[in-house]
Design a protein around this nucleic acid. Structure first.
Lengths: 233, 233
DNA sequence: CCTTGTGTTGAGTTGTGCTCACCAATCCGC
DNA sequence: GCGGATTGGTGAGCACAACTCAACACAAGG
């Protein structure tokens, strides 16, 4: 929060001491990520996190000010890993529609591959009653979703998309819609021993990405199937 | 939870006793609704709720098993008030598109009028790690959103909408998208003394409903403005 | 008046986030 | 190497909130 979350690489005066501290931070982040992902935030106690790496509870607070700061750091750490190279890969796609489809598909892949962490993240993004807004994690999320807004705006300027709708609206529908779609899928992982897990559907990433892109670009109104198949490839 | 949440009007055998209990339940629900709405769930203590109505903390637990059950009851109570007459009003609209627009508009109105309670509700719907799924509140929410699914299906059967997309997807995009749009608006109410409240936008319900309906029905692809204005009125 | 019911109390208990004074070990100039 | 200083680590304990329980108040009915 007040301190930058990027503490991994810094000038190292005493290498041994510095790396020891780094190691502990890494250990705590890893244990917290595992436990938060497995049981959720509230159900995980700091004592559990400490026990996981064989230290006493109080030590956690030598490295992180609060349990919540630890959660935000865990999410930020993971976020950084996931969404680093989007900008570069986006340049490979010739049309705005294909870039949009790619962003949707990648987001769905992340939900499929990291369902529990995504669940934590969704909860954070939605809840405005805490210290999420204005945090580095919030900035990361804004920067990430801005890629989709930029893509839509580019499509508008290039004449590929209509210009009488705010691009922000597309972002809200895409990410909000995916969250809702995912919540059914997430039940499979959150409650793995109930019958809810059994009838919870798998996440067909390719199909969903096609459908969402299709709906957003072409709309619900009926039109000839020819337009739906070529989609300015 | 196990008992129906509709306890306000019932056959009264011993009027004094029965109404005293009802009165207390009503008092507790009202106080909890006010405090949850004003401060959020976590920031509200059961002692505060009890103090609000001038009783001691332990009495709350004679009427509600847990604080969380109280929250679910508060939300269910409010949900019932809000979404009772949708089905009747929907029949007034001749086209599926107009019904869709109405559902979106009404949902946005609810967010505008009950921002804090909606924030609590959004958080519940999203989080799958608790006892929400399978609860009466979950059933209410499913019944409510099913209206939109039914509307889309009707539009498909009538030839107004294309049939190669799952109606459930429209529901996810609409309600998920509105949640995301609303989160910016909710910041104004959750943190009323910060500068975030000042630059947070007001919720232009009419404009947003038009835009969302427009985007979903007509899509992002450019088309003549004539089609956008008449929209089969 | 006593009994019975239920509404109400206030003093617990438990569990969890978090703190702090103190111990241990490692590092550094000498 | 060695004493002081700095950092890593401990465990006891605090604060606070959800939740419990034995006892009390008190109206209604015999």
């Amino acid at each position: 929060m007040a301190t930058p979350h990027r503490i991994a690489i810094a000038r190292r005066r005493t290498p041994a001491t510095r790396s020891r501290r780094e190691l502990r931070v890494e250990q705590i982040l890893q244990a917290a990520r595992d436990l938060f992902g497995a049981q959720g935030y509230d159900a995980t106690t700091t004592a559990q996190i400490a026990a996981q790496i064989g230290v006493v509870e109080g030590l956690i607070y030598k490295y992180f000010p609060t349990k919540r700061a630890l959660l935000l750091q865990v999410l930020g750490y993971w976020y950084d890993d996931m969404f680093g190279d989007y900008t570069r890969e986006l340049a490979y796609f010739p049309t705005a529609r294909k870039r949009l489809h790619y962003l949707i598909w990648r987001h769905l892949c992340t939900v499929r591959d990291y369902p529990r962490l995504c669940g934590l993240m969704f909860r954070e993004v939605l809840s405005a009653d805490n210290d999420y807004r204005g945090s580095p994690l919030h900035a990361m999320n804004k920067r990430y979703t801005q890629l989709l807004v930029d893509t839509v705006e580019t499509g508008m300027r290039g004449g590929e998309f209509r210009t009488d709708l705010p691009p922000r609206l597309v972002r809200s529908l895409v990410y909000g819609g995916i969250e809702h779609e995912a919540s059914r899928y997430l039940a499979r992982y959150i409650a793995p021993h109930q019958q809810a897990a059994a009838d919870a559907p798998a996440l067909d990433v390719g199909l969903l990405a096609d459908q969402i892109t299709n709906l957003l670009c072409d709309g619900l109104g009926p039109r000839p199937a020819a337009e739906l198949t070529e989609t300015r490839a």
